[in-house]
Structure formats: C-alpha cells, structure tokens
Simulated scan of single mutants.
Amino acid sequence: AATGKLIAELPAEGPLIVGGFGMGGAMASSMISSRIRDRILGLVCIAATTFLPDALQQVLMALPPRQLVWMQGRADHVAPFWHAELHASFFEKAGWKITRLAHEDGHICYMPKVREMKAAIQSMATEQDHDSSDATISAPAGTFVLLHGLYGSGKHMMHWARDLAPPGWAVCCPNGSYQTANGGYSWTALRDSMPLLATDPLDEREQELHSKAMDKLLAELPTHGPLIVGGFSLGGAMASSMLSWSIQERILGMVFIGTTTFLPEQLQQALPALRPRPVMWMHGHADKLVPFWHAEIHAGLFEKAGWKVSRLSHDEGHICHAPQVPELKAGILSMVVDCKSGSN
C-alpha cells in the first residue's frame, strides 16, 4: 500500500532514476517490483538494504539488467555492511552493472565519494540517450505474462516464463488472490472449503469474487506496452478471462497449457467482437484434471471466432510436455514477428 501511494505521487510518464537513503533505499528497491519498473533506468542505494529479499531476487531475474549505484559504510551499525553487500549481490547475479562506493564511516552519505556517485548517475541518462542497446533496457519490447495453476505461485512460474518469453521481453508472474493451505495460491475463492478447478463453472457470487481477483491481477501488470498472456491449468482460465477486460487491446496472443475456461458463455460472447490473434494451445490426452474434451471446447471457441489456434497435443497428463516446448517457444516468438511485420 505504501508503494502504491508513493507511485501515485510520481510523474505518470517518462524515464526515472530512483534512489534512497537508509529505509528509503529499501523502498526504492521495492519499486522494481511495481508497475513502473519498465520506466526505471537505474537505482541509487545509499546505506540501504532490502526488507523483501525473496521478492527482489525473483523480479530481478525477470528484468533486463540496468545500473545500480551503491554506497555503504563498513562501520554502519544501522544497515550492516554485510547485509548491504547481500543486497548488491542480488543485482550482480541478475547482470546489473554495479558502481560500488564503499567507505570506512557509518550510516551516512560519504561526501568525498559524492562526485563519483554523481558521475555514475549521469551515465545512466547518458547511456540511455546514446547507446541503442541500452535504450532497450529501460523499455522492454513487451511483457510475457504467465499465470500459475491451483496451489502454485508466481515464483515457481518464473523460470518457465523466462524460458518461453521472446528475447527482450520482460516477464510477469503474479500470485493468485487467494492463499491455499499448502502455502500456494488460487485465482478463485473456495467452494465448500475446496478450491475451484478450471473446469468448474462460476456461480453469480463467485463471478463477483472473480472480478475482484481480476482487478487485483490487472493492477500488478505494466500499464503500457504489448502483452502475451498465458497460463497453466487454472491460470489459463484466468488468462482467458482477461479478454473480457479492456487490457485485451494490448494482447498480441494467448498461451494455454492444460487449461480451459470457467466462463464459457462470457468468453463465447466476447470473442466474436475482438480482433483475432494467435493462440498456442497444449493439452494431454491423459489429463484427468482438465479432460481433453473440455480443453478442446475451449480451443474451439477461439477457432469459431477466427483466431488461429496452434494445437500441441500429447499423450501425457496434466503437464507442460517438455518435448513440445521448442514448438511452443517458436509459436510464441511468431506472435511478435507477425505483429512487427504487420500481419496482425
């Protein structure tokens, strides 16, 4: 909530260099996880660390590297040096360029090194202006959104999403709105103490809760730029539902793995009014959670509306079939290529 309030006070457009001292530096790091992350050219952290290390590591691996200016005192007893070094290491592991300005004093901005700090900050803007390869860093070509299934989490989808995403694209894997007993998440509320499956149609109350869950999901996505949206199992059903919201105008294509829709009538009504786009569809004949026939009905709704559905069927169960992943990746990449060539 504090991050949201802070972002609301910032300019709505344009590149940003974000920094802070002490706890302010921790807050600056947290902004990398927010919807303005694509506008940030670099970070400046002075005598700071992070209070969300797991979330920071997860999101950094999904973003194109940028620059970090880091200043820390070895005698700092408020933000210990080892803790601040751990903070910096998260960025280094993610490929960020780090300017380290260590000193022997405590919890201060060390004045003798301010000139070096200013030069490093200036380089963030200079490289953005003059280096075309770095210019893409502050503005990824788009965002690949991949939603987890029942009992899953965004963290567990990150590696998968990075593998499937087109080159130069950021990835986004939010958590569902409802936490489950195993520590995972669901996109739907409980019914009789049990989470809903992708094959369960929603009643009126559940549709209302679903709308609230969708509002939460959309608030976590970047506010600008093209999207490719997909999901596994229940996450794929949630991805389908996004086509009934205005964000669908930014979607280049859909990716459905082991999934169907829990709002078939709503989807069937929405699709004919939308511009057709490509769909990558993968499903197993032995899937017992989402039966093959049910998934075929889902794919058929898109085909009847003129969408191009590339079907990747296999004989396994409720999985992403590894031998077909190269075809899946090629289909996702073609969504971007076709869009650039104007065929969409």
Rank of each mutant, 00 (worst) to 15 (best):
A79P: 08
W82P: 04
H83G: 02
A84Y: 09
A84G: 15
E85I: 01
E85K: 10
L86N: 01
L86T: 00
L86M: 00
H87E: 05
H87G: 03
S89I: 00
S89Y: 00
F90W: 11
F90Y: 15
F90N: 06
F91W: 15
E92V: 07
A94R: 03
A94F: 09
G95A: 11
G95I: 13
W96Q: 09
W96A: 03
W96R: 10
K97G: 03
K97M: 07
K97S: 13
K97E: 05
K97Y: 01
I98Q: 01
I98P: 09
I98E: 02
T99K: 12
T99L: 08
R100F: 01
R100S: 13
H103G: 12
H103I: 09
E104I: 07
G106M: 06
G106Q: 08
H107Y: 04
H107I: 06
H107T: 05
I108K: 05
I108C: 11
C109L: 14
C109H: 03
Y110T: 02
M111F: 07
M111S: 14
M111R: 12
K113R: 05
K113D: 15
K113G: 08
K113W: 02
K113S: 12
V114P: 03
R115E: 15
R115L: 11
E116L: 06
E116V: 00
E116W: 00
E116G: 01
M117W: 03
M117T: 08
K118D: 14
A120E: 08
A120T: 11
I121L: 07
I121T: 05
S123A: 14
S123Y: 01
S123N: 07
M124Y: 02
A125W: 09
A125I: 04
A125E: 09
T126S: 06
